[in-house]
Amino acid sequence: MPTLYLIRHCSATGQEPAASLTEAGHEQALLLRDFFREVPIDRIISSDYTRAVASVTPLADAHQLSIEREPLLRERILTHEPLEDWLAPLRQSFIDPTFKLPGAESSEEATHRIIQVIERVQSQHAATLLVTHGNLLALLLQRLDPHYDFETWRTMRNPDVYRLDFNDSTPVIEHIWPHK
């Protein structure tokens, strides 16, 4: 079974697909590169959003790997309308995976997208980095281990890194990002 590294992107200027990294985000991307310097990596698959790709570009360059852009790793769409209180529906979506606002994506639907990517790479014997967004990553973690929840999302950092291994098809998750 492969080892998967699940990465939340570095600090960005916004939430839109073309949002770039902040100055701190660029520094964080270099920290990611250094963190993975001695780790054998065979493949990098990233959300096609600018901030996700930019988060691992220095790492990809250091490992001489290309970055495969994967739309299934895009951030989950909670709503298309501005919300004064968006934390309440987000919290509700962790409690009820079928909950969704009009025209948006439920937790169940979003999780299904990232699970498709996990299943595709799980059958390979390669160390793979999956670069995604906080909400989608937290939903994946919750699907694999129910003790991850809304509070997991709230305490995630930019960037953040989890290692995912499968022990006889049982997921083993380890939070490995040491930087504060």
Rank of each mutant, 00 (worst) to 15 (best):
Glu68Tyr: 02
Glu84Gln: 15
Leu72Ala: 09
Leu139Gln: 14
Leu141His: 05
Ile77Asp: 08
Gln122Phe: 04
Pro40Ser: 12
Glu151Thr: 09
Tyr148Gln: 03
Leu73Glu: 06
Leu140Trp: 05
Ala110Val: 03
Gln124Asp: 14
Arg69Gly: 07
Arg91Phe: 02
Leu144Cys: 04
Ala126Val: 10
Leu65Gln: 07
Ile115His: 00
Gln122Pro: 11
Pro58Lys: 04
Leu136Ile: 05
Gln92Trp: 03
His80Phe: 15
Tyr148Ile: 04
Thr155Asp: 02
Gln116Asn: 12
Glu38Trp: 00
Leu72His: 07
Val131Gln: 03
Leu65Val: 07
Leu72Gly: 01
Glu108Leu: 15
Asn158Ser: 11
Arg43Asp: 06
Gly134Met: 04
Arg69Cys: 10
Pro102Gln: 08
Ala60Cys: 08
Leu73Tyr: 00
Ala54Trp: 10
Ala126Ile: 10
Thr50His: 09
Ser106Glu: 10
Ala138His: 02
Ile45Arg: 02
Ala52Ser: 14
Arg143His: 15
Asp48Arg: 07
His112Tyr: 05
His125Cys: 06
Ile44Tyr: 00
Ser66Lys: 13
Asn135Arg: 06
Trp86His: 05
Leu144Glu: 02
Ile77Phe: 07
Ser47Val: 03
Tyr148Ala: 02
Pro58Leu: 03
Arg154Gln: 08
Thr79Val: 12
Glu38Met: 01
Ser93Asn: 14
Ser47Tyr: 01
Pro58Ile: 03
Leu129Ile: 09
Thr111Trp: 00
